[in-house]
């Protein structure tokens, strides 16, 4: 069974570490997705679902985000069933309501793509590919096309169902 799914591809070669993707992600997942200023200044700051890391010498950068693995470690390890993989879209999601903040997914994710322990929210967050938007907010915000939205065909493998 194959399916066409969305993927954000990072061309880290052209990541310039501006962090606008991260900001856009925060805003998109906030109560005010249309206003950066309101999103960032009203109440507590929204949690970004992805991040940008710089190399130790500060010369290169890397977009860190969920790769939407086909056989995701976070889903396997999740004790609460909050982490699931959507069969149709191939997107791995963490249900904020169900998450108990054990950080199992954090230690399982080989990409280091799950945000949570440092936020003080007691919940794990990860990229949901902004499925309701035409483009993921980070892709739309990247000024240097270091993030590209691709639609790829994948061979579906059945994993844990939600």
């Amino acid at each position: 069974m194959t399916a066409v799914v969305r993927r954000v591809e990072a061309q880290d070669e052209y990541c310039m570490g501006c962090g606008l993707c991260r900001l856009a992600c925060q805003v998109a997942h906030s109560a005010y997705p249309l206003s950066i200023v309101k999103a960032m200044k009203t109440g507590s700051r929204p949690v970004p679902r992805m991040s940008v890391e710089s190399s130790a010498d500060g010369m290169s950068f890397r977009s860190v985000r969920c790769l939407q693995c086909e056989d995701p470690e976070c889903v396997k390890i999740c004790i609460s069933g909050a982490a699931t993989r959507d069969e149709e879209t191939g997107v791995v999601l963490i249900d904020e309501q169900k998450c108990v903040g054990c950080w199992s997914c954090v230690i399982a994710c080989p990409e280091g793509a799950i945000i949570g322990p440092g936020t003080g929210r007691g919940k794990a967050y990860k990229c949901d590919l902004c499925l309701e938007r035409e483009f993921p907010a980070c892709v739309a915000a990247c000024p240097n096309r270091a993030l590209i939205l691709r639609e790829v065909e994948v061979v579906e493998s059945t994993t844990r169902e939600g």
Partner: peptide, 15 residues
């Protein structure tokens, strides 16, 4: 504490 991204090291162990 300071456990962000520790999965990267788990991945290194695994691989």
């Amino acid at each position: 504490n300071h456990v962000d991204n520790m999965g990267i090291i788990t991945g290194m162990i695994r691989k």
